[in-house]
C-alpha cells in the first residue's frame, strides 16, 4: 500500500505536484491519467524514492519513508518495481543478459543459472526467440516488453508501469493490456499504470486517478469517470481541442 500525504514537488518555479493525497490499495489496477506534463511520472517516481517530496510524506505499507537512505529504498524497490516510460535497457548487454542481471545480483546464483531463469521471464512476454539480440536491434514495443520482464524478475508485490503503451501500435498495446490484466487477476499483484491512452483504461482499470495541474481532479471507478460532469474530465475523455482544460 502506498500513501501520499500532502505531497508537494517543485522544479524551479514550477509546482508539479501540489498537495497530493492519495492511497493506492493492494491488489487493484490503478490508472494514473492526465495530459502530458501534469506530473504523472513525477508522482510514481516518488513511490520508489527516485524523487523526494519537497513537502508532505510518503508511507509505504504504513512506514514513513521520509528519512530512508538509498539502501532502505533498494529494499522497497524490490517489492515495488518501476518500469520507465522509455525502456531503459542496458545497451551494452543482450536482451537476456539485461533480464539476467537483477537475478544474478539479488539471488546470488551463477551466470548460467541466471540466464536460464531469465529465459523463463522472457517467455512470459514472448521474447525468447530474440533473447540474444542487442537492445538496439529490436523495436520499441519489444524493448518495452523486455523491460517489463526485467522488472518482474524481482518478483515484486506491485508493478508500476509508466506509459506502457505509448508509442506502440494497436496490437502491441493490446498485448501489454492483457499482460497487465493477467498480473493482477491471476497473480494477485498490485498494478499502477501511468497512461494517457484512453483505449486501454476502460476494461482494464479498477480505479482511475485523474491528475490536472498538480492536483487530483477525480478519483474513482471507470464508470464514475465516464459519468463525471466535470467539464475538464469531459474534455479529456472526448479529446476535443477547445474547452476549459488548460494545457
Amino acid at each position: 500500500m502506498i500513501e501520499y500525504v500532502n505531497v508537494t514537488k517543485q522544479f524551479g518555479p514550477l509546482t508539479v505536484l501540489d498537495g497530493i493525497n492519495l492511497t493506492i490499495k493492494d491488489g487493484e489496477i490503478t490508472y494514473v491519467i492526465g495530459s502530458s506534463g501534469t506530473g504523472k511520472s513525477v508522482l510514481v517516481k516518488h513511490a520508489v524514492g527516485l524523487l523526494r517530496p519537497d513537502a508532505g510524506r510518503i508511507l509505504i505499507d504504513n512506514i514513513d519513508t521520509t528519512d530512508f537512505n538509498e539502501r532502505q529504498w533498494n529494499q522497497i524497490r524490490m517489492r515495488y518495481a518501476l518500469v520507465f516510460q522509455h525502456p531503459t535497457l542496458f545497451d551494452s548487454m543482450s536482451l537476456v543478459d539485461n533480464v539476467a542481471l537483477p537475478i544474478r545480483k539479488h539471488q546470488k546464483v551463477s551466470k548460467p543459472a541466471a540466464k536460464k531463469s531469465a529465459m523463463e521471464y522472457l517467455e512470459r512476454v514472448g521474447m525468447t526467440t530474440k533473447a540474444d539480440l542487442m537492445p538496439s536491434d529490436v523495436g520499441p514495443g519489444e524493448r518495452k516488453r523486455v523491460s517489463i520482464a526485467r522488472a518482474l524478475t524481482l518478483s515484486p508485490d506491485c508493478a508500476i508501469l509508466d506509459e506502457p503503451t505509448t508509442g506502440l501500435d494497436v496490437v502491441a498495446s493490446k498485448n501489454i493490456d492483457e499482460m497487465i490484466s493477467e498480473l493482477s487477476k491471476s497473480l494477485g499483484k498490485t498494478v499502477i499504470v501511468v497512461s494517457h491512452d484512453l483505449r486501454s483504461i476502460f476494461g482494464v482499470a479498477d480505479r482511475i486517478v485523474f491528475l490536472y495541474k498538480g492536483k487530483i481532479r477525480l478519483d474513482g471507478s471507470p464508470s464514475a469517470f465516464r459519468a463525471s460532469d466535470d467539464p475538464v474530465v469531459r474534455q479529456f475523455v472526448s479529446g476535443e481541442a477547445s474547452g476549459p482544460m488548460e494545457t
Binding site: 538509498e70 531503459t88 542496458f90 545497451d91 551494452s92 545480483k105
Partner: peptide, 25 residues
Amino acid sequence: AELGTMVVTNQIDALRVLGINPIGY
C-alpha cells in the same frame, strides 16, 4: 562518455529501480 550516456538515457536510474547500487555495480 559511457557513464554519461547511461545517465542521459536513464540507465543509472534503471539500475536503482532494480535495487542495484550503481556505485557497487
